[in-house]
Design a protein around this nucleic acid. Structure first.
Lengths: 145, 145
DNA sequence: AGAAAAAAATATTCTTATATCTTTTTTATG
DNA sequence: CATAAAAAAGATATAAGAATATTTTTTTCT
């Protein structure tokens, strides 16, 4: 459903958000090591998130990544849109193109109505779930990312 | 969300189910042409469905494919399981492995509970939706597959 | 039996996502 | 200013899904 890139991105942001406030930048190597993800691949992803002003990145000694926005203002939807785009929210489940909810000139498909209900729930979930929420849940349930 | 293979398979089955009862076998070329799908690729998919006893296939002159089961007894879930497997129903959205709803020994992930609600709805949809339903919907709304 | 039609099986190519490697740029610090 | 640390950028490799091409098997019909 989500690409690896997107999942890695989400996990990295949860990771950064769960570090103590006092911690400044964190290097890519450290992040990749702790999350057991491929370093250069993760770097690419974090660069995309930095371009979208979700992350802050600084080069040079003591450089690294940190959250640019407050974790209460970063939703799963922000990350998914940045990395995977909006296709998963618009594409039909059985056709390649988008269904008529988006483009009214096209005839609908027979699964359309039922599926769009489920999809709407999914979008709501992504839109309402902030990184702050996730970190809180993770901490209260002693879950590691 | 679903692979191309799976979507093509679903469409082919809806296609076959919407043919008049009197029609016997339909050749792969005909199906591929009408649905505008790549012929040999679609053939592979229909072979999988034939192995799962969803379709009937016969070789030789006047051979082709037809439904083996009544369209009321074929659900979307049957097709999805056959072609894409069960991963989409078990995999976590942010981890690679399955979450703890399946394997209780693993710690859950922070999105788990919310996501599994949406996923359960999706599974219900796939399980309850029969090909017969889809053909009826398509006909009543003058939709083509 | 032989020819033709059709699916099955096999092998190959193409494309894209995933992953890695190398070089370049930036910046803090001695 | 020189050096080193770190990310950015670019180029390259790998794997999987998607698509195509070719050969084989099965079956019907003459």
């Amino acid at each position: 459903m989500l690409s690896n890139s997107c999942r890695y991105g989400i996990r990295a942001i949860i990771y950064l958000a769960s570090l103590p406030q006092t911690k400044g930048k964190t290097g890519i190597k450290q992040i990749a090591k702790d999350l057991e993800l491929p370093t250069p691949f993760l770097a690419k992803i974090l660069q995309q998130l930095a371009k979208q002003k979700i992350l802050n990145s600084t080069k040079g000694p003591h450089g690294g990544f940190s959250l640019l926005k407050d974790s209460k203002n970063i939703t799963l939807l922000d990350i998914v849109k940045t990395i995977d785009g909006e296709e998963i929210f618009t594409n039909c489940i059985i056709h390649n193109e988008t269904c008529s909810s988006v483009d009214r000139s096209k005839k609908s498909c027979p699964v359309h109505d039922d599926f769009s209900r489920v999809r709407t729930d999914l979008i709501k979930l992504f839109r309402n779930k902030t990184i702050y929420d996730l970190v809180r849940t993770a901490k209260s349930e002693e879950i590691f990312i």
